[in-house]
Amino acid sequence: MSLPSRVQLIDVGPRDGLQNEKQAVPAAVKIELVHRLQAAGLTEIEVTSFVSPKWVPQMADNAHVMAGIERQAGVRYSVLTPNQIGFEAARKTQPHEIVVFGAASEAFSQKNINCSIAESIERFAPVVQAALTAGMAVRGAMSCTVGCPYEGDVSPDSVAYLAGLMKQIGVQRVDVCDTIGVGTPRKVQKAIEATLGHFDVAHICGHFHDTYGQALANTLAALQMGVWNFQSSVAGLGGCPYAKGATGNVSSEDVVFMLHGMGIETGIDLDKLVDAGVFISDFLGRKPNSRVATAIVTKRMG
Rank of each mutant, 00 (worst) to 15 (best):
V234M: 03
V234W: 00
A235H: 09
A235D: 12
G236T: 04
G236D: 05
G236A: 03
G236I: 01
L237V: 03
G238F: 02
G238T: 07
G238C: 13
G238K: 07
G239Q: 11
C240E: 10
C240P: 13
C240T: 14
Y242P: 14
A243S: 14
A243C: 09
A243N: 10
K244M: 15
G245E: 13
G245K: 13
G245L: 13
G245F: 14
G245S: 13
A246T: 12
A246E: 02
A246F: 01
A246L: 02
T247G: 06
T247I: 08
G248R: 12
G248E: 08
G248S: 11
G248I: 05
G248D: 13
N249G: 01
N249T: 01
V250N: 02
V250T: 12
V250E: 00
S251T: 12
S251C: 15
S251I: 07
S251Y: 11
S252G: 05
S252Y: 07
S252Q: 07
S252E: 06
S252C: 04
S252W: 05
E253L: 01
E253R: 01
E253P: 03
D254P: 02
D254Y: 08
D254L: 06
D254C: 05
V255F: 00
V255C: 01
V256C: 13
V256K: 09
F257V: 00
F257P: 00
F257I: 00
M258T: 09
L259G: 10
L259S: 04
L259N: 10
L259F: 09
L259C: 03
L259I: 04
H260D: 14
H260L: 14
H260F: 01
G261S: 12
G261L: 10
G261F: 08
M262R: 14
M262L: 15
G263C: 08
G263L: 07
G263R: 03
I264R: 08
I264P: 11
I264S: 13
E265Q: 15
E265I: 03
T266D: 07
T266M: 04
T266H: 10
G267W: 08
G267D: 09
I268M: 02
D269W: 10
D269K: 02
D269Q: 08
L270Q: 05
L270R: 08
L270W: 12
L270I: 13
L270N: 05
D271A: 14
K272H: 09
K272Q: 15
L273I: 04
L273S: 06
L273E: 05
V274T: 08
V274G: 01
D275H: 05
D275W: 06
D275P: 00
A276G: 12
A276D: 12
A276T: 07
G277L: 06
V278T: 12
V278G: 02
F279R: 08
F279T: 14
F279H: 13
F279L: 12
I280D: 04
I280E: 05
I280F: 03
I280L: 06
I280H: 06
I280Q: 06
I280R: 03
S281P: 06
S281W: 05
S281G: 04
F283E: 02
F283R: 08
F283N: 04
F283Y: 15
